[in-house]
Design a protein around this nucleic acid. Structure first.
Lengths: 193, 193
DNA sequence: CGCCAGGTATACAGGTCGGTATACGAAGCG
DNA sequence: CGCTTCGTATACCGACCTGTATACCTGGCG
């Protein structure tokens, strides 16, 4: 039979998308496989044919979670600031109730959980991206600057989950500017104030 | 009979402390009332005599969760920086696996949950504290500075949950210094670099 | 003393959990 | 054609969940 999802995607992807939505909104533990099956219009048996266990389904769903995209072109410092601008759009998503990575980590207490490993690699990538861009921008200590930008990013993701806080990303961007200007060897600022 | 906890505290407090430990470590949903009762050496019936429902127990446990303390004396700017120093101690706690408020919020998806309301008031208090100290320090826009400090605090709490990240609080403190110096009307910096 | 609030122990109701078993139907492909 | 694969539907397992019921025991107090 080999079904496909409504959008024509492979059925495993479709299941993961449905699961991502439910898990993110209501919590990984609160949502059972039964409910995922019902929502997807499939049977539990079918889900277990595509995923060995619920934990693997969780990991697969996390791969489909919305991500902040990072600018792929432009001057290094502008790309960094652009990441915070895209973060703002991300937070403006009506359904945002907190960073998916934070939420999943909060519920998956076992550090060896497959989803936790996915998160770790993502975090490491983000850090490296910041470091490389900072280095390109000519800051004296890219490692430290990356640590700072990382913290701002996490802070905005966390603060943005609060009710009525729509300015977190803007605040973070403003501070990122401050950090970059402070970190440049001297002379002219990297980015205009 | 009127029991008391091992430390002589009222039994309801004792129960809440035991629950706080379990809920924080393993998750609110993953821990059942049975397990709280067993760990406390009591029966489930006794727990339900002191708490109307599990949700109320959750709220009570959150009240006992470890908190970052804020310096109560000193120059305003020093107090702010001192808060980040105390945050560092807080994160160094061996059992730290993320900010309790974030973890609870992640699992309690209902915004009307009693524990969620507790969190909101705490967050509001922290913001007000930053704003008042910033105002005392003579910054030109205390509201904005408070927003920035808040974001740094959240960022450190979130970043600190990552494996092997022990410098988050120091990074946040360094950036707090930067923010304060940048926000002062001009002339001499508020705090030494 | 006798009463009774506040414990104990045990059991149960009604539900959901992750995961599996069984039996059947319908497509794709040699 | 017939076989295999992938889906359906349904039912079940054992474990755990929140919350309550029942019956008994025990310390404190008037």
């Amino acid at each position: 039979m080999r079904l496909r999802g409504p959008a024509g995607q492979p059925i495993a992807d479709y299941i993961a998308e449905v699961a991502a939505d439910l898990f993110y909104r209501d919590g990984v533990h609160a949502v059972g496989v039964d409910r995922v099956a019902d929502t997807a219009g499939l049977t539990k048996r079918t889900i277990y044919r595509h995923f060995r266990s619920k934990d693997e389904l969780i990991a697969a769903s996390l791969r489909r979670a919305p991500r902040v995209r990072f600018p792929s072109s432009g001057a290094p410092a502008e790309r960094i600031l652009g990441a915070f601008a895209l973060l703002e759009q991300f937070l403006a998503g009506t359904k945002y109730r907190g960073c998916p990575y934070i939420i999943y980590t909060a519920e998956l207490t076992d550090p060896g959980h497959p989803a936790r490993r996915l998160i770790e690699t993502y975090i490491a990538k983000r850090r490296a991206w910041f470091r490389d861009r900072a280095a390109e921008a000519g800051v004296s200590d890219p490692e430290t600057v990356a640590e700072e930008l990382d913290l701002l990013f996490d802070g905005a993701l966390a603060s943005g989950a609060k009710r009525g806080n729509l300015v977190a990303a803007q605040t973070a961007q403003r501070m990122a500017r401050l950090v970059l200007n402070a970190a440049v060897p001297a002379r002219a600022p990297v980015v205009a104030a």
